[in-house]
Lab assay of single mutants.
Amino acid sequence: MIINNLKLIREKKKISQSELAALLEVSRQTINGIEKNKYNPSLQLALKIAYYLNTPLEDIFQWQ
Rank of each mutant, 00 (worst) to 15 (best):
L6S: 03
K14H: 15
Q62P: 07
A21Q: 02
Q29C: 09
P56E: 08
L23R: 10
K36N: 15
Q62D: 06
Q62C: 07
P56R: 09
Y51I: 08
Q62G: 09
E58H: 13
Y51N: 10
Y39P: 04
L6D: 00
E35D: 02
N4V: 03
L57A: 04
I49L: 07
K13E: 08
I49F: 04
N54W: 08
E58P: 10
L24N: 03
L53E: 00
N5S: 05
E19L: 09
W63E: 04
S16A: 07
N5F: 06
K36M: 15
N37P: 02
K36E: 15
I15H: 04
N5Q: 05
L24G: 03
K13R: 13
K14Y: 08
L24D: 00
N40D: 10
I15P: 00
Q29L: 11
K13Y: 08
K14R: 14
Q29I: 11
I9G: 02
L57W: 05
E19N: 11
I2L: 12
L45T: 05
T55F: 06
P41E: 01
L23T: 07
Y51T: 09
W63G: 04
Q62R: 11
L57P: 04
N37Q: 09
I34D: 00
Y51M: 10
L43T: 08
A21L: 02
T30W: 09
K12H: 12
E58F: 09
L47C: 10
L53I: 04
E19D: 13
K12D: 11
K7H: 08
Y51R: 12
A21I: 03
L8E: 15
I9H: 07
Q29S: 15
Q44H: 14
G33F: 13
K14C: 09
S16K: 10
S27K: 07
E25Q: 14
S42Q: 05
Q29T: 13
N4D: 02
E11T: 12
V26M: 05
K48E: 09
K13T: 08
G33K: 15
N32C: 08
V26Q: 03
L53V: 04
P56G: 05
L43Y: 15
N37M: 06
N5C: 05
I3C: 06
L6A: 04
E58G: 13
Q17L: 12
K12E: 13
Y52F: 14
E25G: 12
L43C: 08
I15C: 05
S16N: 08
K48V: 05
I9P: 00
E58W: 11
I15M: 15
N32Q: 11
A50N: 01
E11P: 02
T30L: 15
K14F: 10
L43I: 11
I49P: 00
F61S: 00
W63K: 05
N37K: 09
W63A: 04
L53Q: 02
I2Y: 12
N4K: 02
N40R: 10
R10C: 04
E11V: 12
S27I: 03
N5G: 03
M1G: 06
Q29V: 12
K36R: 13
E11N: 10
P41R: 01
T55I: 08
K36C: 08
Q44V: 13
A46F: 03
P56L: 05
K7L: 08
F61N: 01
L6H: 02
I31L: 13
D59P: 02
L20R: 00
K7P: 04
Q29A: 14
L45F: 09
T55A: 08
S27D: 12
L6C: 05
P56Q: 06
P41C: 06
S42F: 04
R28C: 09
T55P: 00
T55K: 04
R10F: 03
L57F: 07
Y51F: 12
N32R: 14
Q62Y: 07
K14T: 06
L8P: 11
E25N: 13
G33M: 15
M1F: 08
L57K: 03
G33N: 15
L23S: 11
D59L: 12
E35R: 01
A22T: 12
N32A: 14
L43W: 13
E19F: 09
L20P: 00
L47G: 07
I2N: 07
Q62E: 11
N54T: 09
M1P: 13
K12F: 10
N54M: 12
Y39H: 10
I31M: 04
A50R: 03
S16I: 04
I15R: 04
N5E: 04
K14E: 11
A22F: 11
K38H: 15
L45M: 10
Q29G: 13
N4I: 03
M1K: 06
S18T: 13
T30M: 12
I9E: 05
L24R: 01
I9V: 13
A22D: 12
I34G: 00
K36L: 14
Y39G: 05
Q64T: 13
S18Q: 14
N54H: 11
K36F: 08
L20G: 00
R10E: 01
P41K: 01
D59C: 07
I15G: 01
S42P: 10
K13P: 00
D59R: 08
I9Q: 06
T30A: 08
E11W: 07
Y39K: 11
L24I: 13
L57M: 11
L45K: 02
R28D: 12
N40I: 15
A22H: 13
Y52P: 00
I31P: 01
V26D: 02
N32E: 15
I34M: 05
E11S: 10
S16C: 05
Q62N: 06
L43M: 14
A46E: 02
Y52V: 15
N54G: 11
F61M: 03
L45G: 02
S27P: 15
D59T: 08
I9M: 07
K7Y: 06
L43Q: 09
E58Q: 13
L20Q: 00
A21G: 07
S27W: 03
S42C: 06
N37H: 10
K48A: 11
D59Y: 10
I60A: 02
A22M: 12
K12A: 14
Y39F: 14
I31A: 02
Y52N: 06
L57V: 12
K36Y: 08
S42Y: 05
L20F: 07
I2M: 11
A22W: 07
N37F: 07
L45Q: 06
L47W: 09
E11Y: 06
A46I: 04
K13C: 08
E25K: 13
T30P: 01
S18L: 12
Y51D: 09
A46M: 10
Q64P: 14
R10D: 01
T30S: 06
Q29E: 15
D59E: 14
M1I: 14
E58S: 13
I2H: 09
K48M: 09
I9N: 04
I60N: 00
A21K: 02
K12C: 08
I34Y: 04
Q44R: 11
K12W: 11
K14L: 13
D59V: 09
Y39E: 10
I60W: 02
N5W: 05
A50W: 02
F61Y: 03
Q62H: 08
I9K: 04
G33L: 14
E35K: 01
L43S: 06
N40G: 15
N54V: 07
A22R: 13
S16F: 04
L24K: 00
N4Q: 04
L20A: 02
E25C: 10
L20E: 00
L20S: 00
L53T: 04
A21T: 03
L24W: 01
Y51L: 11
Y39V: 14
S42N: 11
A22N: 12
E35F: 02
A22V: 09
K36P: 01
N32S: 13
N5H: 07
E19Y: 11
S27V: 03
E25L: 10
V26C: 07
K7D: 04
E19W: 08
L47K: 11
K38T: 14
Y51H: 14
L57Y: 05
E19Q: 14
I31N: 00
P41S: 03
N54A: 14
E25S: 12
L47I: 12
D59A: 11
N32T: 12
P56Y: 06
A50G: 05
S18A: 15
Q17I: 13
K48I: 05
W63H: 05
E25R: 14
D59Q: 14
K7T: 11
N54Y: 06
W63Q: 04
F61G: 01
E19S: 10
K36G: 11
K38G: 07
Q29W: 13
I49N: 00
V26F: 02
I34W: 06
P56W: 04
Q64F: 09
Y51S: 10
G33A: 15
I9W: 06
E19R: 13
I60G: 01
K14M: 13
I49T: 03
K36A: 15
V26K: 03
L47P: 01
Q64N: 12
T55E: 12
I3Q: 09
K48C: 07
I15Y: 08
L24M: 07
L53R: 00
N32G: 09
Q44G: 13
A50M: 04
A50L: 02
L8Y: 10
L8R: 14
Y51A: 10
K7W: 05
K12S: 14
W63V: 05
S42K: 06
Q17H: 04
W63T: 04
L20N: 00
T30V: 15
L53N: 00
I34C: 01
S27L: 03
R28L: 15
